[in-house]
């Protein structure tokens, strides 16, 4: 409500400024995101709905979809736990080497996808550190699902932590300290005070990790072995089909990945609806109360 009031009161130049910002944003996002998205769908539907559906309703494609979901389902929660722990340590305490720890968390981002797959080959490959031992014990890590999960965890590791750290830093610790002083236990403080405060950042972290986990190609392609129907994720299936002159099939799978954006939309809408009253009331109360 307050927003509506303010908008009405705003002077003409400010209104123009706002309009300009909105137009610029829409224009940029349309050109930069919507047009590529549209081109993916245009390619996928170039030979009509039948060809599109046929290329998705295929055992290899379905296996790839299942595998991609599985890998994301394992790696994203692990990174959420890591991200929350890391952000808690980084923002709630002072200790030596904090800057170094921050850099270490970012490290996987600086590793080129071309190299990040190689890392695991050097560790678990037949010529790698643990390769001979693993082979002797019949354990498969690379060219099997564990390798895909490991590589995915590696590349998505920083996202949740990176989302949480700036926000938790900006928010400070007063509320949590107050809760502690009032007798809440550590976990109670975390679940009742911290978690509600960071939920949006956490959500963005999860969205980023999930999108990246499902869309990653470079690192995963090195450790996958590309065995069709067995170790091929959706992005790998896209690449393989493209290389086989199956343009429509490749873009059909790619368009499914692009639909993730719609999942994002749904999750956010649901959360917004769920927390809508809560956010406004609490924020207003907090502003007035403190």
């Amino acid at each position: 409500m307050t927003m509506v009031h303010r908008r009405r009161r705003a002077s003409t130049p400010r209104r123009l400024g706002r309009l300009a910002l909105i137009v610029a944003t829409c224009a940029f996002l349309c050109l930069f995101l919507l047009v590529p998205l549209a081109s993916v769908f245009v390619e996928a539907w170039r030979q009509g709905a039948h060809a599109f559906l046929e290329s998705i309703d295929d055992p290899d494609a379905l296996a790839a979809i299942r595998l991609t979901l599985f890998v994301a389902l394992v790696s994203v929660p692990l990174n959420v736990v890591f991200g929350v722990a890391a952000a808690w340590a980084m923002t709630r305490f002072t200790f030596r080497g904090k800057a170094l720890l921050g850099a270490l968390i970012d490290l996987p981002l600086s590793v080129s996808p071309v190299v990040s797959g190689l890392l695991f080959v050097l560790m678990f490959g037949a010529q790698g550190w643990f390769g001979p031992w693993l082979a002797a014990h019949g354990i498969n890590i690379i060219f099997a699902v564990p390798g895909l999960v490991l590589a995915t965890i590696f590349i998505t590791l920083p996202f949740v932590a990176r989302e949480l750290i700036p926000l938790m830093q900006a928010q400070g610790t007063e509320e949590e300290e107050a809760a502690r002083v009032l007798g809440a236990s550590g976990w109670q403080t975390f679940f009742r005070v911290t978690l509600p405060n960071i939920r949006w950042a956490l959500l963005y972290g999860v969205l980023l990790s999930n999108a990246r986990a499902m869309g990653e190609f470079g690192a995963v392609s090195v450790v996958s072995g590309h065995i069709r129907g067995l170790t091929t994720t959706m992005p790998l299936e896209v690449e393989m089909r493209y290389n086989e002159y199956n343009y429509v099939g490749a873009f059909a799978i790619a368009s499914l990945l692009a639909l993730l954006a719609l999942v994002t939309l749904a999750v956010k809408a649901a959360l917004e609806w769920r927390f809508h009253a809560d956010t406004d009331v609490v924020a207003a109360a907090r502003r007035r109360g403190t």
């Binding site: 080959v121 037949a126 010529q127 060219f143 072995g225 067995l230």
Partner: peptide
């Protein structure tokens, strides 16, 4: 079972244990 990829990359994968 089939695996497809760039020829050199596939050879590397076999060397590394595929």
């Amino acid at each position: 079972r089939m695996s497809h990829g760039g020829s050199g990359k596939q050879a590397r994968a076999v060397v590394d244990g595929l």
